[in-house]
Computed example of a mutant assay.
Amino acid sequence: MLIQVVHSHPLQDSYNHALFRTIVDTLARRHQVIATDLDREGFSPVMTEAERRSYYQGPYAEEGVARLVADLRRADGIIFCFPHWWFSMPATIKGYFDRVWAPGTAFVHDLAGARIKPFLTNIRLFGVVTSYGSPWWLTRIVMQDPGRKVLFRALKPMCGPAVRSFYLAHYDMDRSTPMSRQAFLERVRARVAGL
């Protein structure tokens, strides 16, 4: 299986980057891996004028993200690894979805029917490994987990109905301990090793 791991965090010495390295290294034992570190690659989250103008009129102007589009089109699975800040994904990951998960790649517009048709039927695995500064109850109950909703209600459905998925989150990072971080890292390693 070819699995792309898409990561975003500005600090290479962060806990989140350690999660990314754990995912990539663990997957590489049994699968082919495309390790995509958006921050280290200097990815710009800003949609260009050409990209936006072509969004509905097609074909989508994907030249600025052609390699990322090609990786997504050939992957069998995708795992995202990033922190949640202010209960949402960082701008780099949001820009990745805006620019790469575009018409002709992630979906096809049916403007007359006012809907979109999923187009990433090659993706059979959709995973997320993330962290939140807040405790689980604040994220899930009070804020109703807006980032997770976007991932699983808007993006995962672009992969078609048979996609397998998982979501692993380390909550309360602001008060985490070396023990809680290590326990979560081992949980991630075990989940990914079973793929």
Rank of each mutant, 00 (worst) to 15 (best):
R164Q: 15
T130R: 04
I141W: 13
R53F: 09
V33Q: 01
M143L: 11
F80A: 03
A66L: 12
L68T: 03
M158N: 08
A61W: 05
P161H: 09
M47W: 01
F107L: 07
P45I: 06
L168D: 03
V142P: 00
I79V: 14
Q57I: 13
G113P: 11
T121I: 11
A66H: 05
L72Q: 14
R74G: 01
D71M: 06
V142Q: 01
W137F: 13
F152K: 03
D39G: 02
I93W: 02
V33D: 02
T121V: 03
Q144D: 03
V65A: 11
A106I: 04
S54C: 09
H31R: 03
E51T: 03
L38F: 07
R40W: 00
M143G: 01
I123A: 05
A162C: 01
P103F: 00
L111F: 09
S54D: 10
Q32L: 02
I116C: 01
S131G: 11
W137Y: 12
V129L: 02
L120N: 12
W85P: 01
V150D: 12
R74A: 10
R153H: 08
L155M: 14
F119H: 15
R164P: 00
V128A: 15
L155Y: 13
R148N: 08
V129R: 08
Y55P: 01
G64C: 10
P135Y: 05
P59V: 07
W137H: 10
S54F: 06
V150T: 13
R67P: 11
A102Y: 07
R153V: 00
I123V: 15
T130K: 05
R99W: 04
A35D: 08
I116P: 00
S44A: 02
P135G: 06
D71K: 07
P118T: 10
E49D: 12
R30P: 00
V129W: 07
I93S: 07
V108Y: 09
F152A: 11
N122H: 05
P157D: 09
